[in-house]
């Protein structure tokens, strides 16, 4: 149990977020109305995705510095869970946009660019799937992972700020502060980000451990056959 404290922390944070997110005070804003609470659930998906992709690119660099099978598992599984969170962020964003902007795909610049960066990461998995040689796959995909990360950061965090976007804090829009003039939303939003990051890391760790077990079994079988 002593190694599981961060999993419990993630669970407690998310339980709090789902209670507080629905019951605590939220600012009254026109057009958004009660959907302002979607911020607690939609935005943490993207924060979680970004952090998992960041961990993934760090592992990719570590792999290139010192290639081990283990580090390759870290890189790919972190990227997979990150991509899953990104898809959830996209779907929740489209649902929210449908009721506040008028249509699920609004051509909003941040929406478009985050779709592109998700596609860049999808190409990472396609690249991995198209290579048979394990070592080659690990090396090439680690290099590509760095490029994908280098594309994602400007696509999501820089370019939308240079154009007109309907996302708060981008383009002509005022910053995130518009949602929390009295800081009340931060009380739920930051725990939500932390919670989803921890749960994302937990799921990634399960997948990594599963891959390591699989690897070990294959090794044992090899030994038996030789």
């Amino acid at each position: 149990m002593r190694n599981n404290w961060w999993k419990i922390l993630g669970i407690v944070l998310l339980l709090y977020v789902h209670i507080g997110g629905l019951l605590l005070h939220a600012p009254r804003m026109p057009i958004l109305n009660e959907t302002i609470r979607a911020l607690y659930f939609h935005v943490p998906m993207w924060f979680g995705m970004t952090l998992l992709f960041t961990c993934s690119v760090v592992c990719a660099i570590l792999y290139l510095a010192k290639p081990t099978q283990r580090m390759d598992f870290f890189t790919v599984e972190l990227a997979k869970v990150g991509a899953a969170l990104g898809v959830l962020g996209m779907l929740t964003g489209m649902l929210w946009a449908n009721y506040t902007w008028g249509s699920p795909w609004h051509g909003d610049v941040k929406q478009k660019y985050s779709a592109i960066s998700l596609l860049v990461y999808m190409a990472y998995f396609v690249l991995r799937g198209s290579l048979d040689n394990g070592e080659q796959r690990a090396r090439l995909s680690a290099v590509y992972n760095i490029f994908a990360f280098a594309a994602m950061i400007p696509l999501i965090f820089i370019l939308p700020r240079l154009e007109d976007s309907m996302h708060p804090g981008n383009g002509g829009n005022p910053g995130f502060n518009v949602y929390d003039l009295d800081s009340s939303m931060r009380l739920v939003f930051y725990p939500a980000v932390m919670g989803w990051i921890l749960i994302g890391l937990w799921i990634a760790s399960l997948r990594i451990r599963y891959r390591l077990i699989e690897e070990k079994i294959l090794e044992l079988e090899d030994e038996k056959n030789n």
Binding site: K7, I11, H18, L23, I199, W202, L206, Y210
Partner: peptide, 23 residues
């Protein structure tokens, strides 16, 4: 609504914990 969301969440987290234990 809050109770229903909590039930789903607790169920999912329990599932994750059981999976963790199996691994």
């Amino acid at each position: 609504v809050v109770a229903i969301i909590l039930m789903v969440l607790i169920g999912l987290f329990t599932y994750l914990f059981l999976l963790d234990r199996k691994v």
